[in-house]
Design a binder for these strands. Structure first.
Length: 438
DNA sequence: TCTGGGGTCCTAGGACCC
DNA sequence: TCTGGGGTCCTAGGACCC
């Protein structure tokens, strides 16, 4: 076991989505608050007060007893807002630390090597983020990223319910002080591994670190062996400063109700997927499309189709043609029996992604340059005037830019778009939603 | 005739993350 | 009535090739 000075810190926002909602709606502070996922379905974020009422992440809100539901504040997920606040936090961290790895929407790893007092700098980061963005954070320090993660969790535990968390919001984890951390709370240990580890008497992070590495390797694989090694203070990975290129890109949704004609939904997913693709400078070598029945009504229907493109493409129109073809094939198969199949979920996946610049044209196939220039213009217009201002084909467009949950009356997309009843304004990313100060 | 053995690619499933 | 979405990596087994 080594006790090294900290090399990394993990800084993250406490119950991030809830905290974001509270920045612009202070009436939520101190009240049990939940943020719901797509279609106002499941709880995806809970304030501590909501957790205290017994609510759990992932629970469908309609299953929560009414007397409890009446006591919680509910918001629909507002990812435009969360993403924007997340970016502001990253900017603050870049001003304090030499290297920052954006790990997720609410977590950042930073490099603390060479800082005079890493603990104090983490406290400073916490202060600035609280004051300038309004989000309370915790920080974990460690000589490996896994230990920094562990420290973050321990900081959360020890600062819970403290009115002014202060120094308690930062914790330096070492191989010697992680016995209070349950093994299921270790980064890299999920439900399955936790159950198996518990069964062999491994209850804490310290127990896992003490397990012989070849045993971990043989029973659980190389990934968990790395985790165990990192808990001992031996780093197996550094910060990842460059986001690696995506290998696949998926857009899928549960529909607001069962729909018989899923094409409008799939066309919308295709449009969004291709926009993301071009934004990243990638092209898709293959496509897959899938449709599901409603498992909650006992319909296990699932079918998918895939097709490669002759040449990796960025062209929404080309992808859309292929999506229509595959969807029709699924529907034909589904309707061959008795009755008409209805769908509750569907998705579009782009795979075999490559850098668009690096595509090799051959004698027979190359990029459709005219189509791709058209797409570039389309992206520019949508960037300026809002997503969905212009598009390809018959997708349900909306002038001025649509937000999730906004329906066009009488349009076909009203069939599948879930209605969001409690979406907060896009305070920071939409001029018309700016807060007014009287 | 020799029916072995090693390499590679693909896919499906399982595990994890947020 | 209402049931989240988007990723990665590893491994085992089969197909295929030489």
């Amino acid at each position: 076991m080594h006790t090294e000075p900290p090399r990394f810190a993990l800084i993250d926002g406490n119950t991030f989505y809830v905290s974001c909602e509270r920045v612009f709606d202070p009436t939520l502070r101190g009240k049990p608050t939940v943020v719901l996922g797509n279609g106002d379905g499941c709880c995806i974020a809970l304030s501590p007060e909501a957790k205290a009422l017994g609510l759990k992440i992932g629970t469908p809100i309609f299953q929560v007893p009414k007397d409890i539901r009446d006591r919680v504040q509910v918001r629909s997920a507002n990812f435009a807002l969360y993403g924007d606040l997340s970016g502001r936090i990253v900017t603050i961290l870049r001003g304090l630390f030499p290297r920052v790895e954006v790990y997720s929407i609410d977590e950042n790893f930073v490099d603390v090597v060479g800082l005079k007092d890493p603990f104090a700098t983490c406290l400073e980061a916490r202060e600035r983020i609280l004051k300038w963005v309004g989000i309370p954070c915790c920080a974990g320090l460690g000589s490996t990223r896994t230990l920094a993660k562990a420290g973050n969790k321990l900081a959360k535990d020890q600062s819970k319910r403290a009115v002014n968390a202060g120094r308690l919001a930062v914790f330096h984890a070492t191989p010697q002080n992680i016995d209070a951390l349950a093994v299921e709370d270790v980064w890299g240990v999920g439900r399955r591994f936790a159950a198996r580890l518990n069964a062999e008497g491994v209850k804490t992070a310290a127990d896992l670190a003490a397990l012989p590495l070849d045993h971990v390797r043989a029973r659980y694989g190389v990934v968990l062996a790395r985790t165990a090694t990192e808990l001992r203070g031996i780093a197996c990975g550094d910060l990842e400063l460059e986001e690696p290129d995506r290998k696949q890109l998926v857009v899928s949704r549960t529909f607001g109700r069962d729909v018989v004609d899923p094409m409008d939904a799939l066309a919308t997913f295709t449009t969004v997927a291709c926009e993301k693709l071009r934004k990243r400078g990638l092209a898709a070598g293959a496509l897959w499309v899938w449709l599901d029945g409603n498992p909650f009504k006992g319909d296990p229907f699932h079918a998918s189709r895939a097709v490669p493109f002759p040449f990796p493409t960025q062209d929404t129109a080309e992808v859309l043609r292929a999506v229509r073809f595959l969807a029709k094939s699924i529907q034909d198969q589904a309707n061959r029996g008795s009755g008409v199949q209805a769908y509750k979920r569907g998705g579009v996946g782009l795979t075999d992604l490559v850098q668009a610049q690096a595509r090799q044209a051959d004698l027979f196939f190359g990029p459709d340059e005219k189509a791709e220039r058209t797409m570039a213009v389309l992206d520019k217009i949508n960037a300026k005037w809002g997503r969905g201002t212009v598009g390809v084909g018959t997708v349900g467009w909306r002038v001025g830019g649509a937000r999730p949950g906004e329906r066009r009356r009488g349009s076909r997309d009203a069939q599948w778009r879930p209605e969001l009843k409690a979406l907060s304004p896009a305070y920071t990313t939409r001029w018309s939603d700016l807060l007014r100060v009287r």
